[in-house]
């Protein structure tokens, strides 16, 4: 059973991934070791936990829970994370739609990270494997800077 694929089914961002990993681990510890649940889960977290199959839950035992999570962490580190800079703060729906688009159109990107950069004006900037590429409105203005200046200078007498 591919634990990561199961978790990644409807998890798109690395923050969500780590969050869900944490609540899953906590939930499994509670279940396996009889600890009292102290953290109050959101409705989304509850729905997600509920969406996990029984076979997935039963995979984790007292003996392998920690080793399994260790492996998951190691696997996660191997994944290529795409960092997306947005000029606005997206809602969860937009995040999921972006994630679905990435999963549909790309093969190597499984997870991405959202960062906020209002100076982009519009569009996005991407960082992959440490390489930054700007696809924002700001970069377009800068690329067209000379032409814009020429247009402005027409109005200077």
């Amino acid at each position: 059973m591919d634990i990561i694929d199961t978790i990644l089914t409807n998890t798109y961002t690395i923050q969500d991934m780590r969050h869900r990993m944490r609540i899953l681990k906590s939930n499994l510890e509670n279940t396996l070791f009889g600890k009292v649940q102290t953290e109050i889960l959101s409705s989304d977290d509850t729905i997600w936990l509920s969406s996990l199959t029984l076979s997935f839950i039963n995979y984790f035992t007292k003996d392998n829970i920690y080793s399994s999570f260790k492996n998951i962490e190691a696997e996660l580190k191997k994944l290529k994370i795409l960092i997306i800079y947005l000029s606005f703060e997206p809602e969860q729906e937009q995040i999921e739609n972006i994630g679905k688009w990435l999963r549909t159109n790309l093969t190597e990107i499984k997870l991405f990270d959202i960062k906020l950069d209002p100076s982009l004006l519009g569009g996005i900037a991407l960082v992959k494997n440490g390489v930054y590429k700007d696809y924002s409105l700001k970069s377009k203005i800068q690329e067209q800077g000379e032409m814009i200046l020429v247009e402005f200078k027409k109005y200077i007498r």
Partner: peptide, 10 residues
């Protein structure tokens, strides 16, 4: 519009 720009950039 913002989301459209995002997809356009992607």
């Amino acid at each position: 519009d913002q989301v459209d720009l995002v997809y356009e950039a992607l």
